[in-house]
Simulated scan of single mutants.
Amino acid sequence: MTSCVVTGGGRGVGRAIVERLAGDGATVAVLEVDAAALDWATDRPEIVPVLGDAADPEVAARAAAAVPRPLTGWVNNAAVFRDAWLHEDPAAVADLIGRNLHPVLAGTAAALRAGCTAIVNVSSHQAQRAVRGALPYATAKAAIEGLTRAAAVDYGPRGVRVNAVALGSIATERSDTHVAGLSPAAAEHFTREIAALQPLGRMGRASEVAEVVAFLLSDAASFLNGAIIPVDGGRSAQGRDPESAQGRDPEEV
């Protein structure tokens, strides 16, 4: 792996991906809209900051040009976490869908034009199982998974692999801030809910996502194309049912 681009790479999962790829010896362009999110990358020659909107094709092209060739990996991670109700403001919903989908379109196009051969899109369990009140985000992520499969079919003959990771609940600064703002009782309820939703019984770690992304970009995944890999502790495999034997060990069932 020689050169990569990670959009939204300044914080959380994006930063973990950048750190993982840089640790493998890659030069990584980090496309970020917030300059403050890149304070940690100061004086690190292997990390190249690119400031701007990941949805802007010119900015995406600038990121592609910021690292040496060959460009071997591109990660579309940038996202907007904000919701709107369809019945209240359809235009706001459409805007939020676009703000999550357009960076992936611009990034994938820039990667293809630059000759990149491995692209990973960051999706969510919500692409398949919507969370109430998160219609724009769930819709955008479903579109991103469709784009992943279609791009894999269109560009596979050129030797380009396009895959995605569908994340469950991952511990980041954002989730830490959310939990810190809860009352003790609400925080305990949140922890119980995560344990019920994700069979491994905990939030995922950003570093665990980064490991899967690094694998998908590597030659070890050379025959993986058009795949949506759940990185969710088993959340997508589990069917919650009021008659299930929750709380009992398998030997007791």
Rank of each mutant, 00 (worst) to 15 (best):
Q128P: 00
T148F: 05
G98K: 00
R129E: 14
R235M: 15
F190E: 15
G156Q: 06
A63L: 05
G133H: 13
S123R: 02
D95L: 13
R44D: 14
A152K: 04
M203I: 07
P103R: 11
E252I: 06
E32N: 09
A94R: 12
L224H: 09
A16P: 08
E19F: 00
L200D: 06
G239R: 14
V179G: 01
P45Q: 08
L38E: 10
N225I: 03
P70E: 10
V253F: 01
L101G: 07
E243H: 10
A221N: 04
G133E: 02
A41I: 08
I47N: 07
P103G: 10
A29Y: 02
P250F: 06
E252N: 05
R15G: 12
A94I: 01
E193S: 15
F223V: 11
I228M: 03
A164P: 04
L105C: 02
P136E: 06
I144P: 00
V162H: 01
A195V: 12
C116L: 07
E243M: 11
V165I: 05
A16H: 07
V153R: 14
P45F: 05
L21R: 00
T177R: 14
D95K: 11
E188Y: 05
P70D: 13
P68M: 04
R82T: 15
M203R: 13
A79V: 15
R44H: 05
A110Y: 06
P57W: 05
V131H: 09
R161M: 11
G181P: 11
E145D: 15
I194M: 14
G10T: 14
G204P: 03
H178K: 10
R132P: 02
V122Q: 11
L224W: 13
Y137K: 12
G14P: 05
V179A: 12
A150H: 10
G14K: 08
I97T: 07
A227D: 01
A61S: 11
A91H: 09
E252C: 01
L38A: 12
S183I: 08
L86P: 01
V213P: 06
P199C: 10
G8A: 05
G73R: 03
A220C: 00
Y155T: 09
T2S: 13
F190S: 15
A185R: 15
L21H: 00
V209M: 08
L224K: 00
A187V: 06
D56T: 12
R20Q: 15
V93H: 05
D83Q: 13
L96H: 11
N121F: 04
V209L: 08
E46Y: 02
E208F: 02
A78I: 09
A210M: 06
E88N: 10
A64C: 08
A106R: 06
S222W: 04
E211I: 02
T42C: 02
R62W: 02
E32P: 01
